[in-house]
Nucleic acid binder design. Sequence first.
DNA 1: CCTCTTAGTGTCTAGGATACACTAAGTCCT
DNA 2: AGGACTTAGTGTATCCTAGACACTAAGAGG
Lengths: 229, 229
Amino acid sequence: MSYTYEYPRPALTVDCVVFGLDEDDLKVLLVQRAGEPFKGSWALPGGFVDMHETTDQAALRELEEETGVTNVYLEQLYTFSGVNRDPRERVVSVAYYALVKLSEHAVRAATDASDAAWFSVEEATKLAFDHDEIVATARERLRGKVRYQPIGFELLPEKFTLTQLQRLYEIVLDTELDKRNFRKKILAMDLLRSLDEVEKGVAHRAARLYRFDQRRYKQLVKRGFNFEL
Amino acid sequence: MSYTYEYPRPALTVDCVVFGLDEDDLKVLLVQRAGEPFKGSWALPGGFVDMHETTDQAALRELEEETGVTNVYLEQLYTFSGVNRDPRERVVSVAYYALVKLSEHAVRAATDASDAAWFSVEEATKLAFDHDEIVATARERLRGKVRYQPIGFELLPEKFTLTQLQRLYEIVLDTELDKRNFRKKILAMDLLRSLDEVEKGVAHRAARLYRFDQRRYKQLVKRGFNFEL
DNA sequence: CCTCTTAGTGTCTAGGATACACTAAGTCCT
DNA sequence: AGGACTTAGTGTATCCTAGACACTAAGAGG
């Protein structure tokens, strides 16, 4: 079977920068390339867009197929259209970034055809194609967005401590934050539901757990509230 | 001549939302469709991406071809990939938005094959394809961006008065601003070069003219300065 | 010269941002 | 059981920025 057109067309793909958060590191999910070009190199999960799906759907599908990851926060990042991005032929790629709760996403076993693994963003370098550039763009976007949209919670487990939340912002924004000021500010927003529950299994005073109240956030937004850290 | 591929491919296009600023209105540049579908409807300028050009280049080229507009501030907006965007076949479109100095861009005469004209954004409705949605997305983006990046100047002539600048922000952000506070803030940023020149041909006290100092802005950014209105 | 229109300017107040250090609670080890 | 260790959790004082607010100056036009 083949498909013929009057004018040439670039191939259309999607690529996903999936971020996860470790104790003290921002991580990216990569897959190892099984074939040429860039055989053996690490690359962003992604693939061709089918005719019956949007690029959003393609991104979610490829993500699941290649890494087993589902149920993520996904947002379009940028479309990369450099003429020589792919050495074989012209390929335009719509890039996405995704945020996942790392703890809930043990990566599919390496026994699989395509190997998937988490890398610290700092180490995620020398990737296939122009994927270094895509990762860099995604990091910038994340840094920018996390400050005025409460998307950071997507990187944490459902229940988290204020210290974890603070660490998240410190890691993503690459700054140090004052504990008292941070707590004051975030609690004043009235977006966190304090649970009657504390951390387990820590060798020191256990911290109280909180949950992000999505419902409440939406209400507040309607009344003109603007998240801003 | 024809081109054959093993798998079907969507067509790839670009669309441009070109903003201009009137005395008291934000305007969009539209072209009237000469053929089906949506014959006679107004639409965003745009067209197919060639194999040897990036989407940025395609956007600039189409803009010039269809409207005669060149030398604009251009930025990628979003990629629209709805499966039925175009009734003929699957078309994925990379949308851009552009800012131009309206005074310096008298639109190509209507004698041309394709008719181009400026519309107030409010009136730019019932457009072809999903172009209403694209315009709405572009407006939001502009509103968001103008507050923390000095791109507003792209909409004004080289030399402008502080009142014009204030009007710009009032129109784009859809708020009223206090004259004294606005001037205080914008001048404090030290981004405007005050010229030894005043407005001409006004029936009242002439206002001093200013110019945006791009050079100075870049210096300040290097030192960690953040534009914010 | 009077009128009309827009340009241009300073101060005060309130609220938010930041700097800053000690006590509380729980685990682990001896 | 007690002491050491580690992190949780909390309040205040200061500064600075954002916002409210009204009059005089200049120039054109009749």
